[in-house]
């Protein structure tokens, strides 16, 4: 069994929830999102984030605007859409259910 792979799969599943939560109420550009996810050890390789952001944007959960930056390349600032908000609250619900269920299951098996 490939432990690292399983861990990566676990993280991948909740990454959408994390990104939507990070963007709820506050817009940010990709590098900021990456920094925050990395600080919490939720992201191993940065490249994962770009296809994900693009897909969330294409699905209408996120929108973005361009902003010039001093010296660097222009930045894409992402913002959550009303649809994104709805999806986020759904995801949050199912996440807490999941955590509860998984915790119960693993606790029970210990005893």
């Amino acid at each position: 069994m490939n432990l690292e792979n399983t861990k990566a799969q676990m993280r991948k599943g909740v990454l959408e929830l994390c990104i939507l939560s990070l963007l709820a109420g506050k817009e940010a550009y990709a590098s900021e999102i990456i920094e925050k996810l990395k600080a919490r050890k939720l992201l191993v390789v940065e490249g994962t984030i770009y296809p994900l952001l693009t897909r969330l944007k294409n699905d209408g959960l996120l929108s973005y605007r361009w902003e010039e930056s001093t010296g660097g390349p222009p930045r894409k600032y992402y913002k959550i859409t009303p649809l994104g908000e709805t999806v986020l609250s759904e995801l949050k619900k199912s996440w807490s259910n999941l955590v509860e269920s998984v915790n119960k299951l693993t606790e029970n098996n210990k005893n």
Binding site: A30, S31, Y50, P51, L53, T54, G72, P73, P74, K76
Partner: peptide, 27 residues
Amino acid sequence: VRSHFSDDESGNEILSDIESRIAEMLQ
């Protein structure tokens, strides 16, 4: 990276996002 995302319709967008990240890191 380009050939990896070549069958993705938003492949170009992903690539240019990654490129601009690379530019940032290089700076």
